[in-house]
Amino acid sequence: MARNREPLNLGVNIGKLQLASPIVCASGTFGFGEELTGLVDFSSIGAVTTKTVTLQPKAGNAPPRIFDSGCGVINSVGLENPGLESFLNDTLPKIKKLNTKFIVSIGADTAEEYAEIVKKLDDVKDVEALEANLSCPNIKNKKIVSQDKEATYQLIQSLTSLTAKPLIVKITPETVDIVGVARAAASGGADAVSLVNTFFAMAIDIETARPYLGNIYGGYSGPAIKPMSLYRVWRAAAGLEIPVIGGGGIVNAADAIEFILAGATAVSLGTVNLVYPNKAKDILGGIKDYMVKKKIKDVRELKEKVPSEGSVG
């Protein structure tokens, strides 16, 4: 009988950040969370990662900005957001009332701008954790920092000294050395890494011979990228001394469990939120069912059940 069962532990720690559920909503796919009040059970969500906030308001890229390939979504939103001041004055008072934790995703063009945002947010008591978005593909003519391990190390080291809040680094899959980049973030003092962000992609309308997106190209997400994301999470997590928030194409509980088995401490839901905003509830339910079936009491016991490369005989 259910009441005789020991309760399941679903809580995980992302550095100093304690989450009641291993499910995190990925930046850019959940707004600031408060827009979804009434449609979402926030108690199933460990943390909502906000839309990336920049120092100044950002208009974003030319429309159209989104394309559905049937098995994935290409977006070229380009970090549209109201800017840090509006976030602090208008949005923060609303989101701190939600029944979940939140991670503020931050983006900038230069190390100086990053430092300024981190310093400003470090002073705000209600902000529980930061995620440095070093991986947006929709920034024209600018290098994605997390493609380069040295650049990642330099930037993260400069930021971690400025804040006592947990700092998560969001990494691109578009690098030849994702293991090196994850380790560089850890060496720089990051509390966790989150991967993957989107893959570069495009689509063309053959009738008009024009690209579907106003920005020509964008970032690809959704179920199509899941096997590639899983591989990168498995690679990056092996031997890494900080937790990994793993995701990229998760649409159901089985996908989420795969990422945890591959070495992720928490999982992030992205594109699926656009279709089913309350999906975290279903997926958490599915994880619980799996734990009961496998007689596992603590979600942390699932982690890294899949062997790393060196240990495969």
């Binding site: 707004g31 827009e35 208009a59 429309p63 900005r65 656009l274």
Partner: peptide, 22 residues
């Protein structure tokens, strides 16, 4: 009419240009 992502105002996928910005 515009291609849409979430329909809920969270993804900024369906923005159009207006006199006051997107």
């Amino acid at each position: 009419e515009q291609f849409m992502g979430c329909g809920l105002g969270i993804c900024c996928g369906c923005s159009i240009e207006t006199k006051a910005g997107y």
